[in-house]
């Protein structure tokens, strides 16, 4: 995927930042992309403050909690996100439609196990848009589902004593109307 997003500031678009993952892979990403990862931005800003004289382009930022596989996907997502934003700078509605379309396609190619990795990586990187998107996806997957389905979905077992769960269900009876039984 070619990145054609035009940055208003040409010097920043030419700047590359190097990220190193836990499995020792090195990614060179544009500054605009890296700055969407708040954890990276924080590191980057701190480095610059501490060492004003050093060139910014040589910075290598280690990401000990992120593996290369989810990072590659997040970088792709982030580029696309910036691209859609730049293409629809003056039309918020169009942007949302494009984004929703892209996100729908995106989910078709993501395995559920991958989604967990992606959520953890996005959370560590503090990449807000992606984290929001993944959380929405999971929430809509368990929306209007039974308690049993949710347990299966998250691989959880009930640890209530016999009778306790029934008591709770009775108490929250108002919330149990109209649940899908699948």
């Amino acid at each position: 995927m070619s990145n054609q997003s035009e940055s208003p500031n040409p010097t920043s678009s030419s700047n590359k930042i190097t990220l190193k993952t836990s499995d020792n892979e090195v990614f060179e990403v544009e500054e605009a992309v890296a700055m969407k990862f708040c954890t990276v931005k924080q590191y980057f800003d701190d480095e610059n403050n501490n060492n004003v004289t050093s060139g910014t382009s040589t910075t290598l930022i280690p990401l000990p909690n992120v593996e290369s596989h989810p990072l590659a996907i997040l970088i792709t997502y982030c580029k696309k996100h910036l691209e859609i934003k730049a293409n629809n700078a003056d039309n918020k509605k169009e942007m949302e439609i494009d984004m929703e379309h892209y996100e729908r396609e995106f989910l078709k190619n993501v395995m559920p196990q991958e989604l967990t990795e992606l959520i953890l990586a996005a959370n560590y990187l503090n990449f807000k848009e992606a984290l929001d998107f993944f959380c929405r996806a999971v929430a809509s997957a368990i929306q209007n589902k039974s308690v049993e389905y949710v347990r299966k979905f998250f691989g959880l077992e009930s640890d209530f004593k016999p009778g306790e769960e029934e008591k709770l269900r009775e108490e929250f009876a108002w919330s149990f109307e109209g649940v899908d039984e699948d």
């Binding site: 308690v147 077992e157 209530f160 929250f172």
Partner: peptide, 8 residues
Amino acid sequence: IQHKCVSK
């Protein structure tokens, strides 16, 4: 509120 019944 329902999902309070999932686990402790």
